[in-house]
Design a protein around this nucleic acid. Structure first.
Length: 117
RNA sequence: AGAGUUGGCGAGGUGGUUGCAGAUUGUGGCGCACAGCGCGACCCAAUCUGAGGAAAGUCUGGACUCCCGAAAGACCAAACUUGCUGGGUAACGCCCAGUGUGGGUGACCGCGAGGAGAGUGCCACAGAAACAUACCGCCGAUGGCUAGAAUCAAAUAUUUUGGCACAGGUAAGGGUGCAAAGGUGCGGUAAGAGCGCACCAGCAGUAUCGAGAGGUACUGGCUUGGUAAACCCCGGUUGGGAGCAAGGUCGGAGGGGCUAUGGUUGGUCUUUUUCCAGCCCCGCUUUUUGGAGUACCGCUAGAGGUGUUUGGUAACAAACAUCCCAGAUAGAUAACCGCCCUCUAGAAUUUCUAGAGAACAGAAUCCAGCUUAUGUCCAACUCUUUCU
RNA sequence: ACGCAUUUAGAGCAACUUGGUAGCUCGUUUGAUUUAGCAUCAAAAGGUUACAGGUUCAAAUCCUGUAAUGUGUA
């Protein structure tokens, strides 16, 4: 359930811009940072997960894949032109796929990135 | 049956749907430019490929790249946990085979295993003393002092008996300690001591076996605490440093148009000039898009994998055949389903039903090792008990 | 990728160089003092020196391996 390259947030500069100027929504397992670039470019999504979540690369990669799969499922519902960074909290270690799905939807609606139709 | 020891295979297989990354292909789309050929970094489709035995820790050895230095070679210095022997390897501190030694009833396992007969240091407490000595003790044969007896006419002479423990002898015994000068026994002596003998242990020499480390036998004299994972000595090895975040490319690039000249290829031509066509370069202009970032190279064909044969006890090597097998860069492997296989449980008696396929764990320049983490299965061997 | 450092009582630290009975401060517990508490005084408990192996007569210390934690360069 990967994410196409065109929808990935890749540069450190973009991440810093999102952190500095974007709005912030807090969930139980995730923190959502989003910034509207005022263009029609595809919405970019990046995931940040620190070593404090887990020291094992396998665990971190699995969480990343699960979040990325959830984002891909919601991709048609997102408004264009946003830059989104998702920060994983250490509680997410024991989390299931459905939890990510539910929480992501909630956060996206809160941040008004969600496209209602 | 129980308890162990060692070694090995493999990390379920296969098909489908959706999805991600790379490569290749496309009278495909889209964009640019067009008479046409075309170009593209975007999209789509098809095909192929897509994590490990440890990818990990980063403990070693290399390949590769750059910087500094030197250019054969010798000596000195420095560094190195380099240190039994022989072999393997590109190399190693790794591997294999052996020797010695320690452990285990055994299968088997561990070992940095040169030198303390060059020097220095240290060996707390205890003890006289920790490497050179003598506290208690034993002796006091010999010498000394002293008392008596005998010989003699007599003696201070000679002989002899005793005492002292003064010189001296001794290292058996006691005590201390991890460790006290080879051990045990007999002889020997004033008392003792390898002083002598026997056995054991150690050392040296000779012979012999072995490629060697070493093994065995004989002979000899009779002796030398431990520590070098303390400094050190000896032998051995080595240009030094940094590391793919090494190092390199790009200060515009791609496409189109125009102008003049030059180069080159082809055609016309016997040849040259001329002419025509294509490509490249310089300049101008137009359009698209990026702009110091993993954008591109390095970047994955390698001391490569698999199989067979041969050589070798083995590690391993050689020959032949065959295959191409991840290349991401905020970093690609996931989700679901069917069948087969294996295991477990239940029903039941060879079928059905249910569950599980777990664990450790994710490539980031690449190899060779080591170490650590971890689940299943198989084989060989050992010991104990019971039965035949 | 290449390094560096640390690990000792509940907490913070000594002792390691030069091996020889593991200490200090705070905290804890008990007692004294006080009507009571704090403070003070006296005493006590609390350690597999991160783990495993080795050298040594003897290891927190020396050597090797492992683990955990922190940290530097770009």
């Amino acid at each position: 359930m990967g994410l196409p390259k065109t929808h990935r947030l890749r540069r450190g500069r973009d991440f810093q811009q999102v952190y500095a100027q974007g709005l912030k929504r807090r969930g139980r397992y995730l923190i959502l940072r989003a910034w509207f670039s005022a263009t029609d470019n595809p919405t970019l999504v990046g995931i940040s997960i620190g070593k404090k979540v887990s020291k094992k690369a396998v665990v971190r990669n699995r969480i990343k894949r699960q979040i990325r799969g959830a984002i891909r499922q919601y991709l048609p519902n997102l408004k264009p032109g946003w830059k989104i960074a998702i920060v994983v909290k250490s509680e997410a270690q024991t989390c299931e796929y459905e939890h990510f799905l539910r929480e992501l939807k909630q956060l996206l609606i809160q941040a008004e990135v969600w496209h209602g139709h």
